[in-house]
């Protein structure tokens, strides 16, 4: 009945304790993000912020949104949206010379 792309749902969700640990990690990263506002780290600032943002995004999507445990089909749709959005709007801002004249 099912075809090749079948992936049945994994019912082994993480425990509540695991969720708390993840939330704690997110809180620590957020604290680090906010700390950059008070502590000056120079040229590394924007790359550091971006890395922390992406890590947070990834953690929420993988764990809280269960993408780690769920069908790849869901990830595909979400990633398609993100990749399209990032690439199209990156080009869009490039044409406006945003990165050079910002």
């Amino acid at each position: 009945m099912s075809t090749s792309e079948t992936t049945t749902e994994d019912h082994e969700h993480p425990s509540d304790q695991k969720y708390m640990q993840i939330a704690l990690l997110l809180a620590v990263i957020t604290a680090a993000e906010v700390a950059t506002y008070f502590v000056h780290i120079g040229a590394a600032l924007i790359p550091t912020l971006m890395v922390m943002m992406v890590v947070k995004f990834f953690i929420v999507a993988a764990w809280f949104m269960h993408l780690r445990f769920d069908s790849k089909m869901f990830t595909r749709f979400f990633v398609t949206g993100i990749v399209l959005a990032v690439s199209v709007y990156f080009i869009f801002l490039t044409i406006f010379e945003f990165w050079t004249k910002g």
């Binding site: 992936t7 069908s71 869901f74 749709f77 949206g81 959005a85 869009f92």
Partner: peptide
């Protein structure tokens, strides 16, 4: 279902993929 996924959940993920472009435009 053919994929074994529920209609509702799949629809929500398709919708969220769509929302990426909405917020992308607003942020840009």
């Amino acid at each position: 279902t053919t994929t074994g996924l529920s209609h509702n959940k799949l629809a929500m993920w398709v919708f969220l993929g769509s929302e990426c472009l909405l917020f992308g435009a607003l942020i840009s």
